[in-house]
């Protein structure tokens, strides 16, 4: 692996963070999360009707490696809003439950927010792995 490729990857990650107002780096896709913590974070965003870009870190371990060194955050998922790291599953869930997440995302808080679903353990019944990142606006 050349240094140039790593730099290119890091630049691509930084670009994705700066060009998407809300972006979630996760395991799997919003439709098929591959980890309970990613699933829970997606559920909180969906409960607020937030639109967000999502990047699956699973197809290439270098994505996670470069992301973590860029963000100084060791775990996945990672939610960024307007270029700033908001946190992982625990922080997003806390912000959702306290009602702060809607403000962070700039969306309306539903009158009766549904509680975030409980985190499930790893090991969703292995759906086919998507190779391409799922970037959507």
């Amino acid at each position: 692996m050349s240094e140039q490729t790593e730099n290119t990857l890091r630049t691509a990650i930084a670009d994705a963070i700066s060009s998407n107002e809300v972006i979630l780096f996760m395991k799997g896709t919003p439709e098929q999360p591959m980890c309970g913590f990613s699933a829970r974070t997606v559920a909180a965003l969906n409960a607020l009707g937030a639109s967000f870009a999502a990047v699956d870190v699973l197809p290439d371990p270098r994505i996670r490696q470069e992301l973590s060194s860029l963000s100084n955050w060791p775990t996945i998922p990672q939610l960024f809003v307007k270029g700033d790291l908001i946190g992982g599953c625990d922080i997003v869930t806390e912000l959702y439950e306290s009602g702060e997440l809607a403000g962070t995302l700039g969306v309306e808080q539903p009158t009766e927010p549904a509680p975030a679903p409980p985190a499930e353990e790893d090991g969703y019944s292995s759906p086919p792995l998507e190779i391409e990142n799922n970037l959507k606006g």
């Binding site: 913590f37 100084n72 955050w73 060791p74 992982g88 912000l95 790893d122």
Partner: peptide, 25 residues
């Protein structure tokens, strides 16, 4: 919140979180 979590995460070796410790809520 971010600073608090970073302080705790910083007590672990590089690669330990996500490795031997799959997850730390």
């Amino acid at each position: 919140r971010i600073e608090r979590h970073r302080l705790v995460y910083g007590l672990f070796e590089n690669g330990e979180l996500g490795g031997a410790i799959h997850a730390l809520s």
